[in-house]
Structures are given as structure tokens and as C-alpha cells.
Design a protein around this nucleic acid. Structure first.
Length: 852
RNA sequence: GCCCGGAUGGUGAAAUCGGCAGACACAGCGGACUUAAAAUCCGCAGACCGCAAGGUCAUGGGGGUUCAAGUCCCCCUCCGGGCACCA
């Protein structure tokens, strides 16, 4: 064996030198992180982290998100997959306009400068993105396809205009989608109450897919249950029955009140009909009844106020009788018609049947106004006392006092009664949703122009408000795309769409008649941009189509999508919708965008989410400067499992940095041996021990990547390995560990580190003489034989309490273990003067001796 | 109100299938090296009692199942998140 050359002058670990060196090398090789041709025959792996808004600065939440995705992408490369790992910029949005106001910089300039800065930060982090596929949503080469999709949806009847109540944020000076209103406040301004305004706006018909969006969730096993639950709640599917109640003695034509109920089985217990104050029939009753009209106005005002306060539930229930009656089609009974402030016009039909005996709210209301309460549901098992009202159970309950349905279970009766209603043409089973169509118009500048014009010649058949809509709505032909966003725009907070003040933009010609026309001056919600961006990654330079279907079909669905849970309702529902639309347009084959979704936890400092307002922001740049990118990202993976919140402790980053320094020192010190291709010999005890830990570590990390993603324990395992190598340092110095073993240990260690600390791994791979790029070197395979322990430590308990730990040869059977346990001196002492009742031996785990 | 998470040392956490609770770190304490400090290395460390050997108590609380419970079952508390007069 060669003499060990000790190098006491080995260099210190200096990430500030190592990292820029490798960063420059990687930058100069555009193929390094590029996906390969589809024909390559490798399994594909599409790994994406959610694209950031280019605010100008990466924050720790980004670092954590990208550290997870980057580790996975690198691991998959090392496992031989064809990996697509792209990055892009969600570049339209209000902050650019705010910055423009503040700094007098055009939004485009501000945004592109931020992108350049953040791209550089990402490089500094050592993230493995294929920049050739970069997507920037504010560039015409991208947003022209938003416009193209909008035209396809318009043609398909999925994009339409309507006047309706919309959410208005006075701070943003724009309309918000329902999904952007959080507890009655703006998603960007949590101190700004959202107002309700009547405006004519563009909507996308997401409700057409409500059923599929809901049912698809059941099959999405690769998504967190939490996200699926949130989406289920949001879509709010509800199965029930529509029932027509005819207004008795209608003077004019027959008036029908259509009621939606999920409990048609309780209909014999209905003792009144309650209308929403906006209900057309309520309004018709008010026409000749000024008192009622005034009361309805009051209730409308209450609802508006409550809606804006974000707490509809807080309204005190209040109603007024109209003096009119409706006929129950099931028993011909006359029910008084009321108008009530707790009935919402935008859910169900805006009218309910009130069943006080079997509904909490109806009971409260009936009690307040002294309305009749009639019991029509009873527990299946008769009890001495009737249950207290309201009795809302429907399982193990049956109908009473309900005509021919008396005695049926609630579930049976619901089916039979809906069928009866349908047969007799006064109702039917139906499904309603809480989900509303997606309002996409924004009265802002920095977004995708909507490719529609209004012809001043007013083509026939188009409805519209003349003030807003001077003429007919005309879609531009595809050849007119892109509708470019004008560069010179005065940004003010004055309200109204900024584009409306750009005359060159507004005035155009009608593509149908050639006459003068006005352009739509609203822009699209930025969530349109992010609804399909990951398809564009697969063919980012395509100027003839949003993407090539063959390419998208190769890569989709996304194998792993990683991001924050804050997008559970917004981006993650919109992009599922967009996927289904694209599928129905024949562009793609997949029904869902992502096979697996992972939502990482937040980064916390001093017990609160990092934010400027709390002053607890830690800058990634500062961490990189002090400890290096490797230590920074490795800490983000080490400090907590990825799905939990992570407390940022700078001392912890220092600890990781020291650990990496130890790895660096040991590896460089023994690099001469690591370069040797030693011949296989039978390992001695110390060698076997090192190899055992190594192969256990390989097995553990490989498993962590494929299942639990608990990278904190993966990194802990690497630390254990390094601690053991350090403990064997003297033996290595003395030549008692063969060069072949040293080579295997250090090479594998370098590879195990590669997904977590890529800069150091690249440096050490060179040091140990590894061939090619470490991120493409085949991931080490755990050798079960080498990983096996020779001896097993078996705890011995007496009545469940630990007495001692014995050591037996690995693989010993129960009898051997039991004999060894009973032979132990400490065990014998414990059992003195006692009777052994039972001995439990779990091979490989423990022995428990039960004594009396 | 309904639905999803979560609660383990001074701190972040580990225990993957019911089998030694606290791996791996951070902070702390002690020591080596140093004129000194930093860096590095070695060691100690759940709480309580005890000089020690050792013992007792401990995974938010209370019950239960089991030879054995952080882990399973029942009830409760607190924290985070989602939905909510949704008929």
C-alpha cells in the first residue's frame, strides 16, 4: 500500500471561490441542463417549481421552493431520466404599475430589469434550469397566445360578456375575481374592503367544467388531500332537487317560484317560501306595494353591507311576509311567501322552501316569527321521546306525515320524490355549484390586451350598455394578433382603464365592416398567464402556435409540480380548467396538468412569515455571501421536512457551512486515494463498518427521494456518514483503510451530496477524479449485502421496561435471541424470585419478558 | 358550525409497519490547541432525586386496547389553514 501523503496545507472550504467558478462553467454549457430528444428512450421527468412574480428580489420562500425542485431534478438526472426543468416569469401585474408611479419607470423596463436581476440570483443559487425554455409572460411572443386562447374560447362560447355585480378593489382600481377576494378583502390589500359594483365584464365559463373539476379531484392521488379538499369546498358541488311552487291566484300570467333544496324529503314540512330580496317575483310583488318595496330595499342594503364586510353569516335573520301564497305541488298546501335577508340571489335559485322542523336556519326564523313547525322526519329506531327540533339527521331516519312517501328512508324519498316531480313536470333532480364563472377583465394597463373591438356601426344582435359598448362586440381575426400593449401610457391611479386614454390604441377599424371601431381597453387577469405557461415551456420558441401538441403530449402531465399552498384555489383551479379547455380544443391529450403536486411550508422568522412589514426578512443574497449558496439551500432542506413551516435560524446555516467544510477538508485530504482504482479485496472490520454505513446511507436517501421527501433526514444521514468517516481518519492516515474503499466512500459521498450542494459536489467530483459531470454520473446503488449489520442490538425489557441491550449475530432466530436474553446477568438479576409468565421475542426488534 | 393539518428537550427536529422516545443539528456548558481570540478538534447534555450505583417522571390533557402506545380507539384543550345563513 502506498504511503499516505498528508497534506497539512490543504485549503479551507471557500464557497466564495468555488461557487462562482462553477457557475461560470455551467453558464458556458447550455446543454448541461437541457432536456434531450424524445427519441432518447429514457423515461421522461417533468419537474416544475411555480414561476415567480419578478418583484426584483428572491426571498427565502423562493429559495426553499427551488431547493426542493432542484434536488429532485438533479436526482432524476442521476437516475437516468430525461428531465425538463424550466423556469419563467409571471411578469404581468399590478406591482409593475405601482413601481411605475413611484419611480417614473415604464412597467416593461422595471419588470425586465427585475427579471434580469432575479435570473442572476437563481444562477448564483446554482439552480439547474434550462434557460433555453424560459417563459416571460409580459412579452408579446407569449401573451399573443393568451389572446389566441381568448378567441378560441369566444368562438366556443366559453368567453362571454355580461353585466353583473363584480368585486372592486379601490386600491387596485380594478375588478377582482371571486378567487381573489379573501374574507371580503383584496388578496393584495388585506386592509381594503372589496366593494360590489355593477359592471359589464368578460367572463370565462369555468362552470361548464364544474362537474369534471370536482369529480377529477377524487382521482388525483398525487395531490395533497388538503388542496383537494380546498378545491372541493370552493367548487361546492351540491346535489338536490328543483321544485316549482306556483303563486296562488296570480292576477297576471302564472308565476312560478323555483326552489332549490337538498332535502326534498322534508317538503311536507315546508311551512313557508322564502325569497331573496333580489328575486324577480319579490320585485313584482313590490311593484304595487311601496311598503314591501321599501323593506326589500332595506334588506338589499343589509346584504350589500354584510357582503362587503365579508361576513354574510353575521346578518341578523329578518324577513317580511308578502301577503301572497304559493302552492306546494306535493300536497296542494298554500304556503305564505316571505322575503328574507338571509336568502342569497346567487346561490341555487334565490328561493327556498322553509322547513323549520328540519333545518337550523329555518327553525330560528320560524321561531322568531311564530311560523308553523311541522315534524316530517323521525329516527328509524322509534324512541319514547321525539327528538328535539330542529332534527337534521338524515341517516337512519324515515319520513312521517308525508303522504305516499311516509315510511321511506330519507335517501329513498329524495330519489323517488325527485322522479315524481319530474314525471309530473314540476321539478327535477339537479346539481348546483358554488363556483362562479371567472371574471377576467381588469381595468389595468400591465396585462394582456383583450383582442376584441366594439364596432361603432353596431352590428345587429349584440346587447350592450351604450355608454361602455358603443357598438357590437367583434372578435379580431387571428391574423390581427398580437394586439400589442402600447409602450407609452400614462399610469395614474385615477380609475378607468389606462388603455382607454391611449387614443392610438383605442381607435381602430372593425374587421367585419371596415368602419370605425373601439378596442376593448380592459386587460386580462394575470392568472390567465399562469394558467397554461407550463405547456409553453415544452416549446417556448414556437411562433406559429402556443406549442406543438406532440411536444406537450410527450412531457405532460407534469411529473412533479412544487409550490406554495396559497395557490390552491387560484392558479391550481384555473390551470386545471385551462387544461380541460385545451384538451377539448384538441391541443393536448391529458385531462389534468400535474400528476403530482407538492406544497411546501412557509419560511418563518421569529414566529411569523417573513414580510417587509414585519421587518423579519432574511435576504438570500446575504446568506450566500456569508455561507455560500450550497449551505443556504441545504439549510432550507435540513431545518424541517419540506411540507412543514421552516424557522430560519442563521446559526443553523452556519452549522451546515461547517459541515460542508468538514466534507471538503476530508475529501481533499484523501483525494489521492480517492483517485485510485483499487482492486477489490475482502474488507477488514473497519472497512466493512465504513462500507456498511455508506450503503445504508445510499439506501436511505434513494428511498427518501422516491417517497417521503424528508430531505432533513436524508441530510442527517449524510452527516452520520461523514461523522463516521471523520472517526476513521486516523485509520486512513495509518493506511489501515484500503485505497479502493477510500475511493468508493468519497466518490459516493460526493454523489449523495450532489442534489443538495451542487457547487461543492462539482468541485469534489473533480477532486476525486470522477468522470464527466457529477449530475449525470449514475446514482450509486445500495448493496444490501454490504449494508447488512453483522451484529444486532436487541433491547431486553422486563414488563415493558428496558433492562439491558444485548448483542446477537444478525439474523438470529427467536430461540437464539431468547436464550441470549435470559442468559444475561442483568436480566437474571431482575427475574430473581419471580415467575416468568411469557416471553415475547420480536426478531430483530426486542425481547420483552413478562414476570410476576 | 363543518372539513383538513399540527402540538415531542432551551431550539429546529427524528422515531417510515405498535417494539430502546429525543437520531441529526442549533444554542449552551466543559476541555484541548493558542500569548490571546477566532477557527478547528474532543467531551457533556430531557426533567427530577441521588456523591454514585441507580431510581422516578416524561411525546398538549383525560380515558381505553396491548406483553408493549408519540404511533391504534374514544373524549377534550390549544394553535394554524380552508369553507360557511350555500338552502
Amino acid at each position: 500500500m502506498a504511503e499516505i501523503v498528508k497534506s497539512e496545507s490543504e485549503g479551507r472550504y471557500t464557497p466564495a471561490e468555488i461557487e462562482p467558478k462553477w457557475q461560470a462553467r455551467w453558464d458556458s454549457d447550455p446543454t448541461l441542463y437541457a432536456a434531450e430528444a424524445h427519441e432518447i428512450g429514457k423515461p421522461k421527468f417533468y419537474c416544475i417549481e411555480m414561476l415567480p412574480y419578478p418583484s426584483g428580489q428572491l426571498h427565502m420562500g423562493h429559495v426553499r421552493n427551488y431547493a426542493i425542485g432542484d434536488a429532485l431534478a438533479r436526482f432524476m438526472w442521476m437516475r437516468g431520466a430525461n428531465v425538463l426543468h424550466p423556469m419563467g416569469w409571471d411578469a404581468f401585474g399590478l406591482p409593475a404599475e405601482n413601481a411605475a408611479l413611484k419611480n417614473n419607470t415604464p412597467p416593461a423596463e422595471w419588470t425586465l430589469a427585475n427579471i434580469a436581476a432575479m435570473r442572476q440570483q437563481m444562477r448564483r443559487m446554482g439552480l439547474s434550469y434550462d434557460w433555453a425554455t424560459e417563459v416571460t409572460t409580459c412579452l408579446p411572443e407569449y401573451y399573443r397566445w393568451n389572446q389566441w386562447f381568448f378567441l378560441q374560447m369566444f368562438k366556443a362560447g366559453l368567453a362571454y360578456r355580461k353585466k353583473s355585480k363584480v368585486n372592486w378593489c379601490s386600491e387596485c382600481q380594478t375588478v377582482l375575481a371571486n378567487e381573489q377576494v379573501i374574507d371580503g378583502k383584496c388578496w393584495r390589500h388585506d386592509d381594503t374592503l372589496v366593494e360590489q359594483r355593477d359592471l359589464t365584464q368578460w367572463f370565462l365559463r369555468i362552470t361548464k367544467y364544474a362537474d369534471e373539476l370536482q369529480s377529477g379531484l377524487d382521482k388525483m392521488e398525487g395531490w395533497p388531500e388538503k388542496v383537494r379538499t380546498m378545491q372541493r369546498n370552493w367548487i361546492g358541488r351540491s346535489e338536490g332537487t328543483l321544485v316549482d311552487f306556483v303563486v296562488a291566484a296570480s292576477e297576471q300570467s302564472v308565476q312560478k317560484i323555483i326552489v332549490f333544496t337538498t332535502r326534498v324529503d322534508t317538503i311536507f314540512g315546508a311551512t313557508s317560501i322564502q325569497l331573496s330580496p333580489e328575486h324577480p317575483i319579490a320585485k313584482s310583488f313590490a311593484e304595487n306595494n311601496p311598503v314591501l318595496a321599501g323593506q326589500i330595499e332595506e334588506m338589499l342594503a343589509q346584504q350589500k353591507a354584510a357582503r362587503e364586510a365579508g361576513d354574510l353569516g353575521a346578518i341578523e335573520k329578518h324577513g317580511v311576509p308578502t301577503g301572497k301564497f304559493a302552492i306546494s305541488p306535493f300536497n296542494g298546501e298554500l304556503l305564505p311567501i316571505w322575503v328574507a335577508n338571509y336568502i342569497l340571489s346567487d346561490y341555487g335559485t334565490g328561493a327556498i322552501m322553509s322547513v323549520p322542523a328540519h333545518d337550523e336556519r329555518d327553525f330560528e326564523f320560524a321561531t322568531k316569527y311564530g311560523l308553523t313547525v311541522r315534524r316530517v322526519i323521525a329516527p328509524k329506531k322509534a324512541t319514547d321521546e321525539a327528538p328535539t327540533l330542529p332534527f337534521v339527521e338524515k341517516d337512519d331516519a324515515v319520513l312521517v306525515n308525508s303522504g305516499q312517501w311516509t315510511g321511506e328512508s330519507c335517501a329513498e324519498a329524495q330519489k323517488h320524490m325527485a322522479a315524481f316531480a319530474k314525471k309530473n313536470k314540476f321539478g327535477m333532480a339537479t346539481t348546483t355549484y358554488r363556483l362562479k364563472d371567472w371574471g377576467v377583465s381588469r381595468q389595468r394597463y400591465w396585462g394582456t390586451p383583450i383582442p376584441m373591438v366594439y364596432c361603432t356601426n353596431g352590428h345587429a344582435g349584440v346587447e350592450g350598455n351604450a355608454a361602455v359598448d358603443p357598438g357590437g362586440v367583434v372578435a379580431l381575426p387571428e391574423s390581427a394578433l398580437p394586439v400589442l400593449l402600447p409602450a407609452q401610457v400614462e399610469i395614474t391611479q385615477k380609475g378607468g382603464s389606462p388603455l382607454g386614454r391611449v387614443e392610438d390604441f383605442v381607435n381602430t377599424t372593425c374587421p367585419v365592416c371596415g368602419g370605425p371601431a373601439l378596442r376593448e381597453t380592459d386587460t386580462m387577469d394575470t392568472f390567465v398567464d399562469s394558467s397554461w405557461y407550463f405547456y409553453r415551456y415544452t416549446d417556448a420558441k414556437n411562433s406559429a402556435a402556443p406549442f406543438d401538441s406532440a411536444k406537450a403530449n410527450y412531457w405532460f402531465p407534469i411529473d412533479q409540480y412544487i409550490g406554495g399552498v396559497e395557490h390552491a384555489i387560484l392558479h391550481l383551479i384555473y390551470s386545471r380548467f385551462w387544461t380541460k379547455v385545451m384538451r377539448d380544443l384538441g391541443l393536448i391529450n391529458n385531462d389534468e396538468p400535474a400528476a403530482r403536486l407538492f406544497t411546501q411550508g412557509m419560511v418563518i422568522k421569529d414566529g411569523a412569515k417573513m414580510s417587509k412589514s414585519k421587518g423579519n426578512v432574511v435576504s438570500p443574497d446575504l446568506m450566500i455571501e456569508r455561507y455560500g449558496a450550497d449551505a443556504t439551500r441545504m439549510y432550507a432542506l435540513f431545518a424541517a421536512p419540506p411540507d412543514r413551516d421552516l424557522e430560519w435560524l442563521e446559526e443553523g446555516v452556519g452549522g451546515i457551512s461547517r459541515f460542508l467544510g468538514r466534507v471538503y477538508r476530508l475529501t481533499t485530504k484523501f483525494s489521492e486515494f480517492a483517485r485510485q482504482q483499487g482492486s477489490e479485496t475482502v474488507p477488514n472490520a473497519a472497512e466493512a463498518k465504513l462500507l456498511r454505513t455508506l450503503h445504508q446511507t445510499i439506501a436511505k436517501i434513494t428511498e427518501d427521494f422516491s417517497g417521503r421527501w424528508h430531505f432533513n433526514t436524508s441530510i442527517a444521514a449524510i452527516m452520520i456518514l461523514v461523522n463516521e468517516i471523520a472517526a476513521a481518519e486516523t485509520l486512513m492516515d495509518e493506511g489501515k483503510i484500503s485505497g479502493a474503499v477510500i475511493a468508493e466512500i468519497f466518490r459516493s459521498l460526493t454523489q449523495l451530496l450532489a442534489p443538495f450542494a451542487p457547487f461543492l459536489a462539482a468541485e469534489l467530483w473533480e477532486t476525486v477524479g470522477g468522470e464527466g459531470v457529477v449530475f449525470r454520473a449514475a446514482w450509486p446503488v445500495a448493496n444490501a449485502e454490504l449494508a447488512r449489520e453483522a451484529e444486532m442490538e436487541i433491547p431486553v425489557q422486563c414488563n415493558g421496561k428496558l433492562v439491558t441491550v444485548i448483542s446477537v449475530p444478525a439474523g438470529s432466530d427467536s430461540a437464539t435471541i431468547q436464550a441470549a436474553a435470559l442468559a444475561d446477568a442483568k436480566v437474571a438479576a431482575k427475574m430473581e424470585a419471580k415467575t416468568v409468565v411469557k416471553v415475547i421475542v420480536v426478531p430483530g426488534k426486542l425481547v420483552n419478558i413478562v414476570v410476576k
